[in-house]
Structure formats: C-alpha cells, structure tokens
Nucleic acid binder design. Structure first.
Length: 468
DNA sequence: TTAGGGTTAG
C-alpha cells in the first residue's frame, strides 16, 4: 500500500492523487469509513475531542482497515484541541501517519505542524515541515510560520516569511495576516508596512480582508502609533468586534482613556451588528484603570456580567485589582482579591505587590510576595519590588537579603530592533544590580540612538557592553 | 464525496 501511495504522490496534481487513493480504499470498504469519519467530525464540531480520540482508538483496534486519511486527520485535530495531556496521543498518531505512508498528504502534514505547535514542540513541527515532500504550498508555510509566531519566535517567523517570498510562493490574505502579527510582536512597523504595501500592490483584494486589516491595526497599536491605527480603523468600512476591540485597547494602552471609552459607547450605540466580547471589556477596564475611573470601572464590570452574560476571567479580575491599586485603594484591592470566585494567580498578587512597592506598604507587600512564592512562579522583579519597599522604610537588613536573592536569579533578556529591512536580536546580560534595566528599556535606548543617527554607537557601545 | 493555515487579551 505504501508503494502505491509513493507512486501516486509523485504525480503532479496532489488533489486528484488523494481522491484516487480514497476511491481505492472505498472500493474495498464502502461506506464504513465514511460513516465513522462523520462520527469523528461530529465529536469535533460539538467540542468533544476526547470522545473523538477514544472513538478513533477503538476503531483502530477493532478494524484498522477502516482507518483512512480522513480519520487520521480528524484524530490529529482532536489531539490539538484536547488538553495538553493528550499530546502523547498526537505523537502516536504521527507514528501511524508514517506507518500508513500518509506523510505525503499535505492536509495531514499541515495539521501535524499545527498539532506540534499547540503542544509547544516547535522542533517537531519543523521536522514535519522539513519532511513534507512537496512544499510549494502556501497553507503548509502558513502553518509553520504561525507555529513560530505562536511560540514566541517572531524573529524566526519573519525569517521564514522572507524565505517563502524567495521561493516565490504566492501570498494570500492569511499569510500576510500572520506576518503582520509577527511584526506587531516585535514592534517592527517598517517591515510590516513594507509587507502590507507590497502585498496589496500585487493583489488589491488583500487590502479589503477584514482579519488582515485588524492585524495591521493591531500592529500600529502595539507600536503605540494611535494615529495610524485610527486611520486604518476609519478606512475599514465594515468593522467587527476585533476591529473595535483593538482600537479600544489601543487608546487604553496609550493613556487615552476618554477616547477609549467614547469609542466603546459609540460601538454600542451605532453598530448594532457588533456586540462586545470578553476581550473588549479587558480594554474598557484597562482604560478605566489608566484614567483612574474607579466607579466607572466597577459599573462596566457589572454590566459585563449582567447585560452581556460574559463570565469574567482572570484577566478581568486582574484589571479590577489594577484599577483599585492605581487609585491607591490597596485595602479594597486586597479585599477584592480575597472575594474572587477563582483562585488569584501570580499576576494578580504581583499587581498588588508593585502597588505596595510604590506606596511603601510593607505588610501587604510581604503577604503578596509570600503568595507569589507559594504559587511557585516568583520573578526577579518581585524581589526588587520588595527590596524597594524595605529601602523606602529604612529596613536595610531586609533590603540586602532581597538584593542577594536578585543577584542569584538574574536571567538574560532579549530585545530586537529594526535595521532597515532586517531585525537584529540582542541578548543582554540581564538587569543591572537592582535588576531595573529591563528588556524594554534596552530596546528603547537602542531605538532612540538609531533614530538620532547614532547607529554605530548603539551596536558597538550599548549592546556590546551589555551582551558580554 | 468529509481534508490543511489567520486578527484582539493573557
């Protein structure tokens, strides 16, 4: 059977090859596979991937002959959407793919890349990509580039995007969307603009794609360029909830609380086709937090639950804690944390800790630090924060203890900067003695040096001394 | 006669 597949896969039209292969199977097995595959598909669509996996496993044990490429594909999909604990199952299915010779079927390979990406196993994803015999396919490349982007490797994602362009694979709206998202992650606006303008020059319709435009808008938001973001927003005729949300978050992040809340109001008033979702409310709560609007924030929080039937998640509770902390109501924040229906995570305690650091509240600060430590996710910054509280209170012995713990735990940071058409990556030696010079600041320093024309100084001076 | 890839937050 494997040899038949190999023979078939060497033909030029892969779609026809696969159909031929399936009719070959169906000739023997009739509707059995089809019916069972529909069952698998049904489980997937109704959000029951575990049931799909069990069904697949049972079928494979009882009548392996009824397993065709469709069954395997659905099983891979199920492994991706099932919880992380099932990644072993996915690996077994991958072994089965090899055994059955399905690795030349592009849909299977693409789906496997996605599976490994979800599992956070980027090197296996790349292996699947490399092992795919026919790579002149934009969907396969998109899956791999998305895998890099999803796993915090945007530099590699853009490198691969460039490679793809060199291979002259035709771009479509999906791959451009992903590329822009990677640019957004790195703050590489110039590169994103180049990618966008070149792609709409080649295909005008790409500029009309809503998801792609949302990605472009988001890139400007991430880079803090609210004006350009607003231009994209205004030029987007039919907007969806993501368009509004990105802009609302954009204003909130850049300190324009009023504009953010105005837009939210306008969205509810004018655009009846769009209803806010949980992410929209994160933006709204962020705006209230930055604008110091405690009562308005509380009102939106209630409205989210009562008017829109949305269940607040950790992020929303986090925003509320942030809101209370920023306005100096540390006790209220502490009370709010204790009354939360979900277990507070480290991020929430950290919000309280840094507020305590700003206001010099030793007692609450120590509690927050203890909680973070219990959750086993303490960062260098936590010790810095507490050490600052002690310093402000003149508690020098305690401060020194904290500083020693900082010294032991320094980790290198990374930062990126655009250099014409390139993105350079720098690895710093960690923070300074107080752990204060963090990645963002290094990046800021570099950027200002480059824009002021002191480019060489930035690379040989600041970076070299930090990278040692 | 059922197949593969996308945006927002965290």
């Amino acid at each position: 059977m494997t040899s038949i597949l190999r023979h078939l896969s060497s033909a030029t039209s892969s779609r026809r090859v696969i159909n031929k292969f399936d009719s070959f199977l169906l000739l023997h097995y009739h509707t059995n596979s089809l019916k069972s595959n529909h069952t698998l598909k049904h489980y997937l669509e109704s959000g029951e991937p575990i049931k799909a996996l069990l069904n697949f496993k049972q079928r494979y044990r009882e009548s392996p002959r009824f397993i065709d490429s469709f069954s395997v594909l659905f099983a891979i999909k199920a492994s991706s959407s099932a919880h992380k604990g099932h990644s072993f199952m996915g690996q077994q299915i991958h072994a089965l793919v090899r055994k059955l010779g399905f690795h030349s079927i592009i849909q299977i390979q693409t789906s496997l890349v996605g599976f490994y990406s979800t599992a956070g196993d980027i090197s296996s994803a790349r292996q699947v990509f490399d092992e795919t015999p026919e790579k002149q396919n934009v969907v396969l490349w998109t899956a791999m580039i998305t895998a890099y982007a999803e796993n915090d490797k945007s530099v590699q994602a853009l490198e691969m995007f460039r490679q793809m362009e060199a291979e002259r694979i035709e771009l479509d709206e999906v791959i451009v969307t992903v590329a822009l998202s990677a640019c957004a992650d790195l703050g590489a606006v110039q590169m994103g603009e180049r990618i966008y303008s070149q792609s709409i020059k080649r295909k005008r319709r790409l500029g009309m794609d809503l998801t792609l435009r949302n990605s472009l808008l988001n890139m400007y938001v991430k880079a803090g360029d609210v004006e350009k973001a607003r231009r994209v927003f205004d030029e987007t005729v039919r907007k969806d909830v993501t368009t509004y949300t990105s802009m609302i978050v954009g204003y909130a992040l850049n300190g324009q609380a009023q504009e953010s809340l105005e837009l939210f109001k306008k969205m509810k008033r004018q655009d009846s086709s769009v209803s806010p979702n949980d992410v929209t409310f994160i933006g709204v709560l962020m705006a209230c937090s930055h604008g110091g609007l405690v009562e308005e924030g509380k009102r939106h929080f209630r409205s989210m639950v009562e008017d829109y039937n949305l269940k607040p998640r950790e992020a929303h509770f986090g925003c509320m804690v942030d809101l209370l902390c920023r306005s100096g109501r540390l006790k209220d924040a502490h009370e709010f944390i204790n009354q939360m229906p979900v277990k507070p995570n480290a991020v929430i305690w950290r919000t309280l800790l840094s507020a305590c650091s700003l206001q010099g509240n030793v007692e609450l600060g120590e509690e927050a630090q203890r909680r973070i430590f219990e959750l086993d996710s303490d960062h260098v910054g936590d010790y810095v924060a507490l050490s600052n509280i002690y310093a402000a209170k003149g508690m020098w012995d305690e401060k020194v203890k904290m500083r020693d713990r900082v010294r032991k735990r320094r980790e290198p940071g990374k930062s990126w900067i655009e250099m014409g058409n390139n993105i350079a990556e720098f690895v710093s030696g960690g923070g300074d003695d107080d752990g204060k010079l963090m990645v963002g600041e290094i990046s800021e320093v570099l950027r200002s040096l480059v824009t002021s024309g002191a480019f060489t100084v930035a690379v040989t001076g600041v970076v070299a001394s930090r990278a040692a």
